[in-house]
Design a protein around this nucleic acid. Structure first.
Lengths: 329, 329
DNA sequence: TTGAAAGCGCTAACAA
DNA sequence: TTGTTAGCGCTTTCAA
């Protein structure tokens, strides 16, 4: 692999001139440019990103932290981040933390090491102390999950309102015993969705029954199955279930079908996220549609603005209730 | 962020000595080491990966190319790659190409630029010419999809045999009109699975009916729906469907349910990959289980071996037919 | 055992 | 418009 020196030599110019040609920078004669470009072509030269980065202290790489790539919720967000990044001359480095602190540290350190210009975190279980400390010196954005009143700019939706609308939809259909399958309420989104659930019930003077509220540690299908299994053991079974993620809702659906009950006639189900699977289940799943692609685009735009020194504001995007067969037979 | 110079100054030694301490290299007195370590701690020093990489020409980063993160098939493979990489002191850079040549180029060039030490490609639509050319100079492994008789080492399964077994399973259940939902046969895996399908039919003296063979451009659910819709229009409907991916099979299942037919009584369905969602459908999906995690581990091991200059051999892993409700009511 | 110094490939400030 | 040169942060050879 040729270096800039060799190109300069072959073209009969200085390395500075080669650098200028590479960066389309000021004032190079057409003839000089031609000579350099010929040399570049002949030697098949491609500049070393490493050398350049060391010099400029920028990598044009964006770190994207997700807890797990197996949750389809992140898929569309990442597409948004990626498209926007590439459009702006950045590439992304996608890192799965598995919510493991060590793994997260490895990746977050890349930002200190100038291996990346900034980071977008989507891990609800991220070490906020570390993230806040990094955010003092480096561009960081939180996407979807965030810290209330924190210093890190975020893009998200109104989780409380979305949950409220989902539950209200069930109430309007006549349901009174509505179960909630929630995540651990140490996560902000879980607390917010819980609040929306509570608000809807209260508004319609329905009691909040603790036996109908179930918390899961993870969002995988199996945990939805597990949750539903427990809820079906309750003396007075729920007639509807609101799960805070489609993956959980799909697990619940499976378990209801398995137990011989009918969705939505015996039990109605509402999910959250509108992942692509949610339309493949039988019956298809009523869910809250998050603007995932747009959220990704927004997060990337915010981060890039932050990288180039602009001030960025928190953004709350609109969601939508998508009514399908799992609530309306 | 402190640099090595400042540490050296504070410790009253040369930068070379600091470097030696950092790399646990030969012969540093305990007392010198102590001084340096104190300085490191005081200044909160972390070495610049950029400077180091420029000097050593290695990045300890592995590029992983996937066509799309939305196909859950890749999820477990990536987990395998990641675990194995981290265990060996490498991190991975996950890149989604969307089977776009430009995007692929951006990422593949990182290998020339010494931004990564090697690459694992899982994109069936990868530009083989470019990949082969890179493979001349850099460590590259293909995972799952590969080039027959090519120069790039690969890890895969026996696609022909797997498809043969899937179709044979259907034949043994009494099916004679078995549809095939395949990808574009420009992909090797698609050709191989087609061969397995053909072999099973031939072995049982069943005719290969072109009207029961459907090719899709992509693997998303919607294409499975589309395929099934066409197959249901055939005069003599198939009594079974073998799809070359679970995503397609799930789409087919959805369409069959939608049309009022019963799985497996009216039409049996077999998928391929055993993605986690395949157990959530109603009925659950009979499928071929690929050892995805192991495949990822193997690919990573092969690549790392290749990076350190060892010779690597192609590897074919075992698969398994997982019989569930979509074929056995 | 330790230090001095060269150099990885590049950019940019300054000079011509 | 073009060239000279310092230097980004590190490792490693050579010498002491």
């Amino acid at each position: 692999m040729a270096n800039i020196q060799q190109v300069a030599q072959k073209a009969g110019v200085s390395v500075a001139t080669v650098s200028r040609v590479m960066n389309n920078s000021s004032s190079v004669t057409a003839s000089t440019r031609q000579k350099v470009e010929n040399a570049i072509k002949e030697l098949n030269y491609e500049p070393s990103v490493l050398g350049r980065n060391l010099r400029t202290s920028e990598s044009r790489l964006i770190l994207v932290l997700i807890p797990s790539i197996s949750n389809p919720f992140y898929t569309e967000i990442i597409n948004g981040i990626e498209d926007t990044s590439i459009k702006n001359g950045y590439n992304i480095l996608l890192c799965e933390t598995d919510s493991s602190v060590e793994r997260e540290n490895i990746y977050l350190n890349m930002i200190k090491n100038k291996l990346v210009d900034g980071a977008i975190s989507m891990d609800p279980a991220v070490n906020m102390e570390k993230l806040n400390q990094l955010a003092l010196d480096y561009p960081i954005i939180q996407c979807s999950e965030y810290e209330e009143g924190g210093i890190i700019p975020y893009v998200t939706i109104n989780n409380e309102l979305a949950a409220y609308q989902a539950v209200k939809h069930l109430i309007k259909l006549g349901h009174e015993r509505i179960a909630l399958v929630n995540s651990d309420e140490k996560f902000l989104y879980a607390r917010q969705r819980r609040q929306g659930y509570d608000r809807a019930l209260k508004e319609y003077h329905l009691p909040i029954r603790e036996e109908l509220i179930y918390h899961t540690d993870y969002l995988e299908f199996d945990y939805g199955i597990q949750a539903m299994r427990k809820l079906l053991e309750v003396q007075e079974k729920p007639t509807a279930v609101f799960a805070v993620s489609d993956t959980l809702a799909i697990g619940a659906l499976k378990e209801i079908n398995q137990s011989g009950l009918q969705v939505p006639n015996d039990i109605a189900v509402v999910g959250f996220d509108k992942i692509s699977f949610s339309n493949m289940t039988n019956p298809s799943l009523t869910t809250i549609s998050q603007p995932m692609y747009k959220m990704g685009c927004t997060a990337a735009t915010m981060l890039i603005n932050s990288v180039v020194g602009k001030k960025v504001e928190n953004i709350v995007l609109d969601h939508e209730l998508v009514i399908r067969d799992s609530t309306m037979g």
